[in-house]
């Protein structure tokens, strides 16, 4: 193995490590998403937002719940896109 080979394999290894790291980060994000969602949708929050207020004609709590819901969907979509791309690159 000459010096160049050694270098390439080191940089390959570094790439792999980076990919692993980013994968691990994505996995953590994926784990965090439902937890954050569950936390924001606990009855305590719902009670807070069940105030007698409206946004654009709809009750605040309705906007809150559906807003969080949509937020979760968007985050999941972004994450899925990232993971699919990474998966593709890896193959």
């Amino acid at each position: 193995m000459n010096a160049t080979d050694a270098q390439t394999s080191t940089s390959d290894q570094a790439d792999r490590v980076l990919i692993q790291q980013s994968e691990r980060r994505d996995r953590s994000r994926a784990a965090a998403l439902p937890l954050i969602g569950f936390f924001l949708l606990t009855p305590l929050f719902i009670r807070v937002f069940a105030a007698d207020a409206t946004v654009l004609g709809a009750p605040l709590v309705v906007i809150y719940i559906f807003g969080i819901w949509l937020g979760l969907i968007i985050c999941a979509a972004l994450l899925a896109k990232r993971l699919k791309r990474a998966d593709h690159a890896f193959r």
């Binding site: 994505d26 996995r27 994926a30 784990a31 998403l33 439902p34 937890l35 969602g37 569950f38 949708l41 719902i46 709590v61 309705v62 719940i65 819901w69 979760l72 969907i73 985050c75 999941a76 993971l83």
Partner: peptide, 18 residues
């Protein structure tokens, strides 16, 4: 609003699919 819980649970499971 109680009805949304039936759809929020699956939402949480699916966004945490990984």
């Amino acid at each position: 609003l109680e009805f949304v819980t039936i759809y929020l649970g699956p939402t949480l499971v699916f966004v945490g699919w990984l």
